Amino acid sequence: MNKFKIALLQTRVYENKNKNIENALSFIEEVSKKGADIVVLPEMFCCPYNTSYFKDYGEEENGLAYKALSQAAQNNEIYLVAGTMPEIDGDKVYNTSYVFNRKGIQIEKHRKMHLFDIDVEGGQSFKESDVLSSGSNITVFDTEFCKIGLLICYDIRFPELSRILVQNGAEVIIVPGAFNMTTGPAHWETLFKCRALDNQAYTVGVAPARDYDSGYTSYGNSIIVSPWGNITNKMDENQGYIIEEIDLDIVKKVRSELPLLKHIRKDVYKIELI
């Protein structure tokens, strides 16, 4: 199959974890009825984006949110990229995205590799490493449509990682993220367009809705960019969703007409995993 429909759920994040889960389940059911094949939730969809919340809202794999989303994928017969949630593993906390297939079976998970530790003068200051540990796995998963690469938010700023996903077969790169009101207006669109152009792949960014009353204000603007670098669809700051058709023939067309991936000088330089 060369086409599929992807749904981006830009949900609001409340302080009540159960309310966040119920909100996500409602949207999942709605977009599934409208033909979505793959559904994507935002980064920290069930937890306010503040380091002080991560341990309290966190759960071990197969916890409350995990089970609810696994069941939702099965009930609605969709692939579900379950945004991210704090994952407790022993004495460590990870920012983790689980992927479920149409039967509700976990087929992959990605732990955020690059932790968001920044201090922008006159702007945002945040230090994920105060609580979170970093993951170390390159994440590509199979569907009946194509291979899909998975990153989390800050990971997209590291071009080597996206290139490795594509070298491992990815034609689409999905990124649950939560850029803020400093980095979002400055870099969100540019990064998704750059990674799409660099790798001649679709890039998909899914963020929480904007809430000025929260301690961390998401930029929103969930986005889909084509392999040619065109924004094919984008949201504003409000809660809601978009459903977009992904045409994999466009990936093949762009890679054939402008074969930059074939022109990489592997005799001169290459990216290697350590």
Results as ranks from 00 to 15, higher is better:
N76Q: 08
V99F: 00
Y57M: 10
A65F: 06
I250A: 13
I243S: 09
R265L: 07
I271E: 07
I107P: 00
K234M: 13
V251L: 09
M85F: 12
V39W: 13
N233H: 09
L150S: 00
E60P: 06
V166Q: 04
T96Q: 01
D130R: 12
E237P: 04
Q239L: 11
F179N: 06
S133Y: 15
N168K: 15
V204S: 11
L8N: 03
A82K: 03
R265P: 06
Q167D: 15
S26Q: 13
L273Q: 05
I246F: 14
E22H: 07
A36Q: 04
G215A: 15
T139K: 07
V254M: 10
E108I: 06
N76T: 12
E60M: 07
L64I: 14
V166R: 02
F158E: 08
Y14F: 15
V204C: 11
A7T: 06
E30L: 12
P259R: 10
N76P: 10
S32C: 02
N221I: 02
N2T: 06
K33S: 01
I164Y: 07
S214K: 13
V166I: 11
F4I: 04
C153I: 08
I231Q: 14
R265F: 06
T51S: 08
F27P: 00
L165E: 00
I224L: 15
T143D: 09
L115K: 09
P208K: 08
S226H: 04
K34S: 00
V99P: 00
K3W: 01
P176G: 07
K33V: 00
P176Y: 03
Y212H: 08
K19I: 04
